[in-house]
Amino acid sequence: MANWSDPRSTVTAAAAPVDTRASATDAGLRGYMLSVYNMMASGVLLTGIVALAMVYTGAVNSLFDAETGKASLLAYVLMIAPFALVMVLSFGINRLSETSAKALFWAYAALMGASLSTILLVYTGTSVAQIFFATAASFAGLSLWGYTTKRDLSAMGTFLIMGLVGLIVASVINLFLQSSAMQMVISAIGVLIFAGLTAYDTQKIKSMYFQVAGTSFAGKSVVMGALTLYLDFINMFLFLLRLFGDRR
């Protein structure tokens, strides 16, 4: 009798560490995703603040040549600079410190705000606000689905990335054709592509946590995740605005 042990206590003792590890993983994942969403949302907020500041201070007028009304040199710089920062973040993230990566993300969001300030001159403020909140609601729903779904979205992601390449090619072609009908088609397809990418990228960022958790790369991974979702949000917003926005 002295060697007898209750089998229930054995099961409990064996299961407890597993449950503890599972709870720690869930908490870590939630914290990781919350950091990604907070940084992404903060970037969108900064973009909006800079865009509004550019309009209300009149600085947006410096993006146009006073005599011809065409884009100024500064406008071209603002179009190229964000692209350059994305390239630095994407290809140089391993060499950057977490602080530097965050600084580049904030710089990118601010430059995007300056560049996108011109949309407030083209579309009504009410229209921009309505499309923004519609985009935010759609983004939240799609990202939540991407986070909770058990379906592997890898195949869909490959298809969407191929579609994105085709979309870029079509957009370049339409720069020369200047077809309004083609622009509408491009915008509609763009909304669908970035809606799908929002779900796909959310799942990919969630999966990334299990690779970087506890490593020195975790902080930089948050920055890259935030940048990815930021780009999905901004592009979906712009395509929706082109489709449904009311021009001045």
Score class of each variant (00 low, 15 high):
A51Y: 03
A66K: 10
A101C: 06
S90W: 12
R242H: 09
G92K: 08
L121H: 06
R30K: 15
G113E: 07
E98Y: 15
G125Y: 03
G43P: 05
Q183R: 13
L160Q: 02
K220D: 00
K206E: 01
T228V: 11
V172T: 11
S221L: 02
G69N: 06
P82W: 02
M1Q: 12
L116N: 09
L78P: 06
Q178I: 14
L96T: 05
M184R: 13
D201I: 08
D19F: 15
L240E: 01
A27W: 07
K206I: 06
L29A: 09
D201V: 11
V223H: 03
T202S: 05
I131W: 00
W106N: 07
L167A: 14
F176M: 08
Y147S: 09
D19E: 15
L116S: 08
T47R: 11
F91V: 07
T10W: 07
I161T: 12
S115V: 15
A213Y: 11
A15T: 13
T99L: 15
W106R: 05
A24N: 08
D232Y: 06
S207H: 11
A137H: 07
R242E: 07
A155L: 08
G31Q: 02
M54D: 04
L197V: 03
G141E: 06
Y230N: 09
M156A: 14
T10G: 12
T135N: 03
A110K: 05
V212E: 06
Y108E: 10
I168D: 04
